[in-house]
C-alpha cells in the first residue's frame, strides 16, 4: 500500500542549516549533510532543502551542498528557494537533487513550468504555492508569503497541474508558525481537485495534526520544520502513532 510521507524541511543559508536545530547527536548543528543523515536514519521519507541565500554568487555553494547530500543519503530530496530558470534546475539536478521546487518564478512566468517539465520530466518539478485566506477567498502569495497576488489558490493549483507540475507543495501562510494544525480544508479541496500528489505544509504542532492532514486533509505528504528540528516530535514516534491511528506509513 502506498504510504503517506513525512518530510522534514531544512532551511539553508550560505550552505549552512539555519533556524534552531537541536539534536544532541549533532556535532555541528549547522551542517545540513549531518542533519539530513540523521533524519534519513530516523525514517524520514523525503527531505526538502530550502535555500534562503540572498545573493546570486552564493548559489554555487548550494550546488556543492546538493552533491554532498546526494553522496551521503539514500532517500529522495527536493531543493528549492530562488529557482528561476531552466538552467538553475539543470545545475541542481546534475548536482544530484531528485526534485526541484519553484515558487515565485512560476507565478511571474507560468510558462517556466511547461519548459521545466518538458526538459526534465514532470516527476522532478514541484510547484510550491503559498496561500493566504483574505476575506474568505484563498489567494496565492509570493516572496515567502509577503506579497499578495490576484491569483486564486484553487485556480492556480489547477493551472500548474495542467502545465506539467509533478507535485504541489501547499503552504498555508495563515497556519505557518502557529502550531495549530495544518490547513486541512484547502488541502483536501486541492487534493480532490487534482490528479497529482499534494504535500501539506504549515501549522504542524502535534502528532494528531499529522493524522488530521492525512485523513481530513487528504494530503499525500506532510512537511514540517521546527517541530522536527527541536525534537518536539521525534519522527519514529510520529510514525508509530500514525500507524496506530490507521494512517499507512513506512516503518
Amino acid at each position: 500500500m502506498l504510504t503517506k510521507r513525512i518530510i522534514p524541511c531544512l532551511d539553508i543559508k550560505d550552505g549552512r542549516t539555519v533556524k534552531g536545530v537541536n539534536f544532541v547527536q549533532l556535532r555541528d548543528a549547522g551542517d545540513p549533510v549531518e542533519l539530513a543523515k540523521i533524519y534519513s536514519d530516523q525514517g524520514a521519507d523525503e527531505l526538502v532543502f530550502l535555500d534562503i541565500t540572498a545573493t546570486v554568487d552564493k548559489r554555487k555553494t548550494l550546488a556543492e551542498l546538493v552533491t554532498k547530500v546526494a553522496k551521503a543519503i539514500n532517500i529522495p530530496f527536493t531543493v528549492g528557494g530562488g529557482v528561476s530558470t531552466v538552467e538553475d534546475v539543470k545545475v541542481l539536478l546534475n548536482a544530484g537533487a531528485d526534485k526541484i521546487s519553484i515558487n515565485s518564478a512560476a507565478v511571474k512566468q507560468p510558462g517556466l513550468i511547461n519548459d521545466m517539465a518538458l526538459e526534465f520530466g514532470s516527476q522532478c518539478i514541484v510547484v510550491a504555492i503559498d496561500t493566504r485566506n483574505v476575506d474568505g477567498i484563498d489567494f496565492v502569495h509570493t516572496h515567502g508569503g509577503r506579497k499578495p497576488t490576484l491569483l486564486k489558490t484553487q485556480e492556480w493549483a489547477k493551472e500548474v497541474c495542467e502545465r506539467g507540475a509533478g507535485e504541489i507543495l501547499l503552504t498555508s501562510m495563515d497556519h505557518d508558525g502557529t502550531k495549530s494544525g495544518f490547513a486541512n480544508e484547502i488541502t483536501a479541496e486541492i487534493s480532490y481537485m487534482l490528479s497529482i500528489p499534494v504535500i501539506a505544509s504549515g501549522g504542524a504542532g502535534s502528532m494528531p495534526h499529522f493524522r488530521d492532514v492525512f485523513t481530513f486533509g487528504k494530503a499525500d505528504a506532510a512537511l514540517a520544520a521546527s517541530i522536527f528540528h527541536f525534537k518536539e516530535i521525534p519522527i519514529p514516534e510520529l510514525k508509530n502513532y500514525l500507524g496506530q491511528e490507521g494512517v499507512p506509513v513506512r516503518i
Binding site: T3, Q123, L194, S195, I196, P197
Partner: peptide, 17 residues
C-alpha cells in the same frame, strides 16, 4: 489510469511495499 482522485493519483509517487 487514475481514479477516485484523492485516493489513487498518477504518477504513483512515494514509498510502497
Amino acid at each position: 489510469i487514475p481514479h477516485n482522485t484523492a485516493e489513487f493519483k498518477v504518477p504513483h509517487v512515494g514509498w510502497n511495499n
